[in-house]
Design a protein around this nucleic acid. Sequence first.
DNA 1: CTGTTAGCGCATTCAC
DNA 2: GTGAATGCGCTAACAG
Lengths: 329, 329
Amino acid sequence: MKAITLHDVAKAAGVSVITASRALSNPGRVSESTARRVQQVAVEIGYTPNLLAGGLRARRSHTVAALLPEISVSQFLPTLAALTEGLAAEGYQLILGQTGYDRAREDDLLDTMIGRRVDGIIATGLLMPREEVKRRLIASRIPVVETWDLSSNPFDMAVGFSHLKVGAAVAGFFLRKGWERVGIATGSDQRAEQRREGFLSAWGKDVPTATVPAPSSVALGRQALGRLLEQDPALQAVFCSADTLAEGVLTEARARGLRVPDDLAVCGFGGAEFCAHLLPSLTTVQVDGAGIARHAISMLLQCIEGSRPAENVVDIGFEIVERESTRRV
Amino acid sequence: MKAITLHDVAKAAGVSVITASRALSNPGRVSESTARRVQQVAVEIGYTPNLLAGGLRARRSHTVAALLPEISVSQFLPTLAALTEGLAAEGYQLILGQTGYDRAREDDLLDTMIGRRVDGIIATGLLMPREEVKRRLIASRIPVVETWDLSSNPFDMAVGFSHLKVGAAVAGFFLRKGWERVGIATGSDQRAEQRREGFLSAWGKDVPTATVPAPSSVALGRQALGRLLEQDPALQAVFCSADTLAEGVLTEARARGLRVPDDLAVCGFGGAEFCAHLLPSLTTVQVDGAGIARHAISMLLQCIEGSRPAENVVDIGFEIVERESTRRV
DNA sequence: CTGTTAGCGCATTCAC
DNA sequence: GTGAATGCGCTAACAG
């Protein structure tokens, strides 16, 4: 009851192993009749190529690692889905890794992925490996794309946007509305912190802030609004570091009899599907998660094929999509 | 600039390759001093084992495939997260596959995973491979766990619950409330359809139904309620096949001035985090997604270690968690 | 406790 | 157009 190998196919088709190999993966280099015969035999005897063996020889595993802080962070889902789908279309599979916002686990995962000889690594967020791991990663020559963030000097390549600019853009948006008493509800991750910084520097002064642990949730959003209102009961607007947080803020506002946007305006971040269908619909900072995936894949594939993308940093931008939650008359 | 192999470690430590191998992966079988020396050398020269090569030889890839219909179906997220985490703790990585509710893609993915020599396959939902693929899968002897569903004759192993029973339980719940005019908002996937069947057979007669395409979303929930109210403007309660759908129903009800639960009661399915924090909070059928993952992992590991779990089908059950959305006075 | 031998299944290099 | 030899990096089986 052994597995069926290329050897068996070759024997059954009356050719050598290498001819069978070529007939299946490079039919152009073999006569048409041979190719057909081998292919038919392969199907008949139920041959499934061992990708591990092929990969070992060809030094190509046809796998890509996706490193996420936490899978339940729904912000990254469209990216993850697009990666899975886009890579599969190119014959690559995604290997999942969850760092849990933990530096040591990130390092472990990187080592594992190097060991697995993945053909590329796509990280959500910036990678911050220990010096030692960093050296191994560089030595492995595995192309790395950091996403959902931009760095002045990325580890290798990056596709994302500036979180500082997001914060500044929202601050500008609030300023143009003429609001003066605003607050921030933020998850405790690094990128959210940057958005807050960007907001503050454009705003010119500090504002009430409620920080909740990552990952964000509706429950934490409700809680955050409570804490913000303690700091300033006359709050006019809240910038949330995630759409789920914003949803919680909307809910809590309603629970407290605050009308949105008349008593309180709310802006989320991420561009989740549900934003457009809440009541009131939610203004948010829209990010093209699937577009990030597409860019990352194309950059990775270029590296794998031996060249390098023209730009190793792609700013994919963002857009404030205004909806009812900030449309105060 | 070649990769550093076990060979280099062995040379640097002055031992044979196999001793180096044992020192790193089975230190009990070599002297303590040798083990320590080899381990130290390995770190010094930056050795990263090639898991592909090891796997080829040991016939163990230390990977498990997770097959999902669609990554954006948030119902499966806790399961996916728990799988990633639980498997990593055991030294296994998850390889992701997205079938898109498409039989042909499921078959392709199965073939790919067989080719990758994954040590196990965990599917959400029941697998329905073509006869041909099924034979290859069986021949490969890869253990398979189907989750989130139960089958009288699973492909190999299964951990889930009966969707018919879920439907029946919700129907019973509605009956006990004394409601007579009820409806169903359902995604167009197979398991949701079963829940509907279970509901109808317990209810005793047909009810208005709005079917929306999978995957479910808040927008589709809003749309579904609209269609249900066209069929019966005096609807008293709605059973939704997903929590996101139910959230849309809640929103649409509010948009139309219907009070929940007084004018309309709503029950979701899945047990998403946000249910408890909506306004009104959402009654739902709670499913232990992480528990499913734990069971699946333990069953898989037993198979990999050569034995078989005592039961090849585990019914993990479900629970109706009542909240405000059905608490009518 | 350590080393030698022999592959795992496939693809690259060279011949013919 | 086809094939024989060789090795990718590692470990199981046996021997010493």
